[in-house]
């Protein structure tokens, strides 16, 4: 049975889709079978980030409504044969997804794939709740910024209340992934530090993705950053985060700015 991981945040524009693509590709690189599911019905973008926008024929809604088979809708990645994408539809009908339909699709994906990554839409409405509904684990993407941290806290509350696992009295494993981290600004006290974010959210850290131009370049090119430029700092951080997600006990090193003499190198164990 595969593991279902929801990538969520509450707030939009913090890097859910980018992180889904980067983490999914990183796990698939290790030989695991990975499916990426776009839950952002009406505003799909995972296909674009994955460079598969011209190969979309059927989508998640088609599968749920029975107009296409799951195998027809899954798009196999051209670079990694263990990586698949199930795109969202562009329909404007918000009720296109049903809980029963999503349950069935997730159950079938779970039986075939080692990992199923659910890319959540922004917000806390139905779409976001369906994306997290059947998850075993959650990656909460957070920017070190007040509104993002507040929304993450709200999403953590939802994960603990509205997921199937939570309703059955089980614990859903949650991890915070801090993205767009600027070490120089944090060290000058202009940006919330990793310590601040973790203390406020009291949730273990999966990784810190530094603010990087490589991320934008990768999305311009339609390739997950972990595939296109694996030696870059953001890609490395994603690759390490993926290893932690797979259970490896790998310490998180907080990026620091070498220029300032006050800056310290902080080591941290991932929980």
């Amino acid at each position: 049975m595969g593991k279902v991981v929801v990538v969520t945040s509450g707030k939009g524009g913090v890097g859910k889709t980018t992180s889904t693509a980067a983490l999914g590709a990183a796990v698939a690189k290790t030989g695991k079978k990975v499916a990426l599911v776009d839950f952002d019905v009406g505003l799909r973008n995972l296909d674009l980030i994955m460079g598969a926008e011209r190969r979309v024929v059927f989508d998640l809604v088609n599968v749920i409504q029975g107009t296409a088979k799951l195998s027809q809708a899954l798009i196999r990645d051209k670079r990694l044969e263990t990586l698949y994408l199930l795109p969202a539809s562009q329909t404007r009908d918000k009720d296109a997804l049903t809980e029963e339909g999503v349950a069935e699709v997730i159950a079938r994906l779970r039986s075939v794939f080692d990992y199923v990554f659910c890319d959540s839409p922004a917000g806390i409405e139905r779409g976001a709740q369906l994306a997290m509904r059947f998850a075993d684990e959650a990656v909460i993407v957070t920017n070190p910024e007040v509104s993002s941290v507040r929304d993450s806290d709200r999403i953590i509350g939802l994960l603990d209340a509205r997921t199937m696992k939570a309703e059955q009295g089980e614990l859903i494993q949650k991890h915070v992934l801090v993205t767009r981290y600027d070490a120089a600004r944090a060290s000058r006290g202009e940006m919330l530090s990793i310590d601040d974010v973790l203390e406020i959210l009291s949730t273990p850290l999966l990784g810190i993705i530094p603010e990087s131009q490589d991320v934008l370049r990768a999305s311009n090119l339609g390739a997950p950053v972990t595939l296109s430029e694996p030696i870059n700092s953001a890609a490395k951080a994603y690759l390490e985060a993926a290893r932690r997600l797979e259970g490896e006990d790998l310490p998180v090193v907080v990026p620091f700015e070498r220029k300032g003499f006050l800056d310290r190198l902080l080591g941290r164990r991932a929980a």
Binding site: E145, V146, G189, E190, L192, S193, D196, I200
Partner: peptide, 9 residues
């Protein structure tokens, strides 16, 4: 400003 952000949050 970061400590202010932290306190407000």
């Amino acid at each position: 400003s970061a400590p202010v952000a932290r306190e407000r949050l």
